[in-house]
Every structure is written in C-alpha cells, then in structure tokens.
Design a protein around this nucleic acid. Structure first.
Lengths: 153, 153
DNA sequence: TGCTAATCAGCAACTCTTGTTGACTGGCTC
DNA sequence: GAGCCAGTCAACAAGAGTTGCTGATTAGCA
C-alpha cells in the first residue's frame, strides 16, 4: 500500500477531499500487517479521533477499495477484512484466533485441468483465484495465547 | 449427498426426529447441483409446504452440516451457501449471476512452498484449503441471461 | 473571505442469522 | 389406542455487519 502521504496525493488527484478523518484512517492502515475489519480500523482511529463515526470508516475504506489502494477480502470470518497488501498473494486463516497471514503461493494455470460438470462451468473465464488455507497458527496449536497481533475481531 | 431416504435413516439413527419439514428440505437438496443459500432452500421448500418457517430451514441445514451430510461454504456472496457435494472439490463463482460451480482441482502440497512473513505464519498447520475461482460463466460473459440454474440469491 | 461540492455524523434500516419461548408432534412405552 | 416427553416447530425479536438518507460541516479553490 502507498504511504499516507501518497494516499493523500492520490485522493486529491482524483478530486476527492482530504479530511483529518481520512488521514487518520491512512495512518491506521499504514504498515499494518494484520487484515483489519472495518470495526477494527474504527477502534484504531478512535484512539486519536474519538469523534469519528463508523460510517465514515466504512466510506473511506470503500473509497480506497474503489481506488485499488487496498482490497476487500471475505474470509468467512463474519465480517469483511481490508488488505493493504496489493501484491498477489493468498491467505492463511487461523481458526483459533481468526488472525490472517499473507502468503505467496504459485498456482500454475489451474484451469486447463479443471473438471467441471458438463454443461455447467464450461466456458468459465477466471478473473482471479483466491486460496484460503485454514488451520491453526503455531501459538494456537500450542494452546497458547494468540500472537501479539491478537485476534482481529 | 445421501438420498432423502438415507438421510431420513441417518436422522433417525442419531435420535433426531423426522418431520415433514425436514423431509421437504432433504428433497429440495437431493440432486441439487446449485449451491443454494438458506433463503433459496426456503423458497424451494415453500412451494410444497408454505407454512414452513425460515428458522426451521436454518435449523435443519445446520443439523445436516453437523452430521457432515452437507457442508457450509462462505464464498463471499453475502450469505452462506450449502453444498451437498461431499467429494473434495473447489468452487467457480460467477460474479455476474452469483452461480457457483463445483470443480475438482489438485493442489500439490502447497505448504512447503509457502512464503510466509517471518515470525507470523510460520508453524501454521493447515487443516483445509479452499480455492475460489472468480470470474464469469459462459452465459454472463456472452451478455446473456444466467444459466437455467439462475441466480442463486 | 466566500462559495460549492464533497464529506461528515447520526440515525435508521437493511440482510443474514440465531436465541428464546410456548405450542405442537413423532416415536416410544404401556 | 392412550399417554408421555424430548425434540421440533413457528413466530418473534434481537444481534452483527453494512449501507442509505439527511442536514450540518468543511476542504479546496477562486
């Protein structure tokens, strides 16, 4: 993801206005290795700006998603997660603490080998491939507390 | 998935009661190649049993999931989908009509090649791998109406 | 400084799902 | 067949997550 400064420029260059609320959200996302939910971003931003509303956080996250600066991923955790990592990657999801890890995996052009029920998926054009590895992170597997990143609600 | 008759037996053998509502739900799922949502199953069942409640459909689908007869998948479509296909498989999701197709894909032991940020996901034990191919089905890509299966809401 | 469109906060409402509750019923025993 | 009871039912409401609406506020520009 771009730095907060670069994001500010990108916002301005698109005719969007730069507000303190948005800057606070940029800061919260900057260098954040977790995959925060909107609620989680809201909590982080409220520390410095208690008056901000959850509505504004959703709006700004959606704006960033529209601009392609972050991506919205649904990992089946009940809420959408926002991912500042724009490199091609997939996800490890810990079923213990709901922490999400990025992971780089090469999947070699899977489509030619697809076995699709006749008449159903043939002719399907694949735009993107999401791979989600579910399991337990080392800490949870060891019965310890989740990593320092903690559960991202 | 088992046939409605086999499911009835399975229910009885587990001490669960067999009600007309449940049988109607078994029938709706039997041989259903789509990946219906609870609401969609509800609609199908209501054709023959208008008095059934959505609550009962959820309850029965969850019972079947608990019994391992069907599986619940979250494909980021806003609602859970129930998948009678118990064979190992992955999913094609059409972003046009939200139709879900089953697909058999071999992914060769991906973990050894994982590149996980140091200190984060190392030691992660993978239980299951979900692969979701997103794109357009042939009909939607051609700008036509969705397949006969129709949009599964 | 003043204007204007974009943005804000707050509220309500929406969708999906599940908890609660009192009434009903399938399956068992007698 | 009658009676019992755990399991199941429908209806209602509520919870979580998200978004639409609206009047007030504000960033950015001239």
């Amino acid at each position: 993801m771009k730095s907060p400064t670069e994001l500010s420029e990108a916002f301005r260059s698109q005719g969007r206005k730069l507000t303190p609320q948005r800057q606070a959200i940029f800061d919260a996302l900057d260098g954040n290795p977790s995959h925060p939910s909107a609620e989680s971003v809201y909590d982080m931003v409220r520390v410095h700006m208690p008056s901000i509303s959850l509505r504004t956080v959703y709006q700004t996250l959606n704006d960033l998603t529209e601009m392609g600066e972050i991506s919205q991923v649904d990992l089946g955790l009940g809420s959408a997660r926002f991912d500042p990592n724009n490199e091609p990657h997939h996800h490890l999801v810990c079923s213990g603490c709901a922490t999400v890890f990025d992971v780089a995996v090469e999947v070699d052009s899977p489509l030619p080998d697809l076995e699709v029920p006749a008449g159903l998926g043939d002719g399907f054009v694949v735009d993107s491939t999401d791979i989600i590895f579910r399991g337990m992170c080392a800490r949870c597997a060891a019965g310890q507390q989740p990593t320092d990143l903690g559960p991202v609600p």
